[in-house]
């Protein structure tokens, strides 16, 4: 099976307040179309690993490869361009740009990528909104939307450039159970219908259980795979 993401012996230390090894040689392979949950006790290093996988943290030892490209050692600008084209993010806090409408928020990564014309980008963004059932809010400023609606806009934004992988750090951590279910259903549909690869850190056991694969971490290592 084709793999989308591969790591080799990823190791990371924090030096403040004292030297402390937070990740201890993480080896991980993620296949295309997999819906993967990353679980583990608070403080075991899940977020730290996600920042490395997402290419935003470059201060680590080991190797990272996404879609066949070796990303370890690339410059910050190269990594930014790579994220734009290949990675979608969904954070715990939705992180939408408050001055822009829902539609504009979704369009921004695509306009940055400049693969399609503005009209095409707008049509594609609108299609994502429809897919997630929030097309009615397209022209609304995002700070006028509810938490669940905002998170759906954020998912639409993560999808706009057809990324190879979507990463979420506790994407449902700030949502009620109704919205948590909805986000889970969206993720499940994306993976099963559209072969979208997703890695999500979660504390929600039910959420994890329903995903394709669970990776459990403890003290900077993967204990079950």
């Amino acid at each position: 099976m084709e793999n989308v993401l591969r790591t080799h012996k990823i190791t990371k230390y924090f030096y403040d307040p004292e030297k402390f090894q937070v990740l201890k040689g993480i080896d991980l392979t993620v296949n295309r179309g997999e819906f993967l949950s990353l679980v583990g006790k608070s403080g075991c290093g899940k977020s730290t690993l996600m920042y490395i996988l997402s290419t935003m943290d470059t201060d680590y030892e080991g190797e990272l490869e996404i879609s066949g490209q070796r990303l370890t050692g690339k410059s910050l600008n190269e990594l930014a361009a790579f994220r734009n084209a290949h990675i979608g993010f969904v954070f715990q806090f939705h992180y939408l740009l408050p001055e822009f409408t829902a539609l504009q928020n979704i369009m921004i990564p695509a306009l940055k990528l400049a693969r399609y014309s503005r009209a095409e980008v707008e049509a594609r963004a609108y299609a994502k909104l429809e897919m997630l059932g929030i097309q009615d809010f397209a022209r609304k400023p995002t700070n006028k939307l509810s938490g669940g609606q905002q998170q759906r806009v954020a998912i639409a934004r993560a999808l706009i450039n057809d990324p190879d992988i979507i990463m979420g750090d506790e994407p449902t951590g700030n949502l009620d159970s109704y919205n948590t279910h909805m986000v889970f259903d969206i993720f499940a549909e994306l993976t099963h219908r559209y072969k979208q690869t997703i890695i999500a850190v979660t504390h929600d056991d039910e959420f994890a259980r329903k995903s394709d694969r669970i990776i459990e971490m403890s003290d900077g290592t993967i204990i079950s795979n």
Partner: peptide, 15 residues
């Protein structure tokens, strides 16, 4: 926050 999200989405420091 906006700067962080822009960078996460692929805007470079120069942008």
């Amino acid at each position: 926050k906006d700067i962080a999200i822009l960078k996460a989405m692929g805007f470079s420091g120069g942008d």
